[in-house]
Amino acid sequence: MKRALLLAFVLALSNSACGAPAAVQAQRLVIPSPTGPHPVGTVSVHLVDQSRQDPWSKSGAKRELMVSLWYPAKDVRDYKVAPWMPKAAADRYQKDNELKPGSVLMDRTDGHQGAPIDQGLGKLPVILYSPGANASRAYGTGVVQELASRGYVVVTIDHTYDAAVVEFPDGRVEAGLEMTDFAKAVEVRVADVRFVLDQLSTLDKAHVFDLQRIGMFGHSLGGAATSSSMYADRRIKAGLGLDGAVFGKMAQSGLDRPYLVVDTEGKGGMSTNPALRTFWDGLRGWRLNLTLKGAAHNSFGDDVLLIPMSAKPLGLGKAQVQEVVGTIPAKRALAFQKAYPLAFFDLHLRKRKEPLLDGPSPAFPEVAYRR
């Protein structure tokens, strides 16, 4: 199995053999619809950083990125929904993970391609999203759609050659490398993030982005990219890491802006990750640590749906899947992702009171709080 969709299986199950793939009918990945008052629009954009050579490529080419903008739309009736992942990328993605192309349909989201942004909402806060290592910007679609439906502009970033697959407008599909130098990967991601921040005013065709209210979040390596980007660039006012690591000097310095650490009880959590504990101890701004009980590393993002769907054709059993996505029901993991990032950014970018962040909530008994 290649390290992309099933990265966690490679790491957690490296000593166990997968069973023979079973013949199954195609399944459709269905991300739960957002619950906010606004319909969602989306557009994908190709960006080229003319000031930087791509650090992962030997060709000397300039650094290229694909990003997607998600936002509250004014009218979506005449605009088709965007796929979870473009078809050529989805086919390559499944092939690289020993799935027959088309065995998992990734053909719809609740984001309407090219729908006009709702300018009547005034200035909108902006949130950046960085996925995990060898993942894709699509992995965060569930939480991203929710934020957009609540009045945020969300910019999701594919870090080329670190991402699982990236499809460019000319039809090229660039697959991810087998990433081993994670410290370098974080440095590259920080440069990507700062470049995207520089492009926000150009991307803001309707002149509604509030560039004084920018947040960022990420899963796993995307969490490390979030904290590291905040150290490097003060334009990011608040950050959230979903079971995200920290690296090198970034674990030592004290961050002075709001940060939410979300972790699990297993590998990489606060209890087992000394670097994350050092980072936590050094936080000098508003801080909160939430531990999602019953969750595992891939309980966050759309993995909690995608991995179990892929288990049967790959011959993976229930115990193997639980090692990766935990024992928490997918419905509860998804409910957490809809509620807590929204509450965090509403508190710190909109200055709204959020009782959900004050302490244990009867609505979320699986969430443990630590100040």
Rank of each mutant, 00 (worst) to 15 (best):
T202V: 14
G218Y: 14
L47E: 04
S33G: 11
G359V: 07
G282C: 05
A343T: 13
K87T: 11
E174F: 13
G151I: 02
Y231D: 09
K74Q: 14
S130C: 05
K58V: 07
V76D: 07
P308E: 07
H46W: 08
S57Q: 13
W84K: 02
Q27T: 06
Y231N: 15
P34G: 15
R194H: 10
E167K: 15
W286V: 01
G171W: 08
P55D: 10
K95F: 15
D78W: 08
E167L: 15
H46M: 08
D78M: 07
V30M: 08
S68M: 11
V304R: 02
F345W: 15
G248H: 01
G122K: 04
D54P: 06
T180H: 07
R3M: 08
K58F: 10
G218N: 05
F9I: 13
K331I: 13
D96Q: 02
A238D: 00
D198R: 09
P274M: 03
M1Q: 10
N15F: 09
H297S: 05
D181L: 14
D96A: 01
L13M: 14
G142W: 00
G142F: 01
F9Q: 12
A17V: 15
S103T: 11
W286M: 02
D346H: 12
Y71Q: 04
L283C: 08
S136R: 07
A73C: 12
L177S: 13
M106F: 09
T35M: 06
P39R: 00
G19Q: 13
E366T: 04
R52D: 13
I157T: 01
S310A: 15
A23G: 04
H219R: 03
G120K: 02
M1D: 08
N289Y: 06
I236T: 03
K2P: 10
R137A: 04
V144Y: 01
S220I: 10
P37N: 06
A163W: 06
K87S: 03
F9A: 13
A82R: 05
V126I: 12
S149H: 02
F182C: 00
V40P: 12
G142T: 00
F209R: 12
T327V: 10
R108C: 08
A295E: 00
K237C: 07
D110E: 01
D170V: 02
V154D: 01
M1G: 14
D91A: 08
A224G: 14
D302C: 11
R370W: 06
I328A: 15
H207L: 08
E98D: 11
A232I: 07
S201W: 09
L65N: 13
R332Y: 04
G111Q: 10
E98R: 07
A296Q: 12
P274R: 07
G218L: 13
F195G: 15
L314P: 09
